[in-house]
Amino acid sequence: MTLWTLLKRDLATLLPGGRGGGSLLPVLFFLAVAMLYPFAVGPNPTLLAASGGGVLWVGALLAAILPLERLLAADVERGMFDQWALRGLSEELVVAVRLLAHWLSFGPFLLLAALPASALVGIDGETLRIVELGLLAGTPGLAAIGVIIASVTVGLKSGGAALSGLLMVPLAVPLLIFGAGSLSTGGEGGLALTAAISLVLVAIAPFAGGAAIRAAREG
């Protein structure tokens, strides 16, 4: 019941059209990358089909950076985390719920947007299948990295957004290597490794995030 109350509030804030400024911007950004790519490299179908899947992965990674700035900082500033702590709700629990809400607010929409995006970059059905499976396995990991970074940058007064983006890129490299790598091998191996990395990140994120928020309180 408590979890549902927390999740409901998080979704109301984070989902596109949510009152907290959640929006479709990450998805539109993702589509914009897919739309720009053919203009940039030219209308060569072989080149596009060979590289389109990788571009979708880069687009997904960049889109996952956009919602980070207000993911946790607003609640710390408003004293919400202090109030939760007094009620015995641990930071880990709140961050775990936030991770789920964060993924729900961009993951499924990204999977949907990958359909028109695949047409824009001209990849075939089989490649699209691997991209979709890869994103399904990889976006929870991207969300987890995002939550960890948002919790570490909670105390920053300004420049948090740019720094979040900068921190996200190197941490997401393993996901990108195996996720996009599964396209060239066409194999299950890459997808399995992507899912494994995602799982580890999702398992770590609540504890790393909770510890970071508690540390910020002492500052």
Binding site: R78, G79, R217
Partner: peptide
Amino acid sequence: AGLLRPFAGSVERSGQLALVDERPALDEH
């Protein structure tokens, strides 16, 4: 409230705590 760690000494509480400080902890929007 247990939100800061004491430099020395200890605090013991029995019973639920409630706090009002300068932040209302309500969603602005």
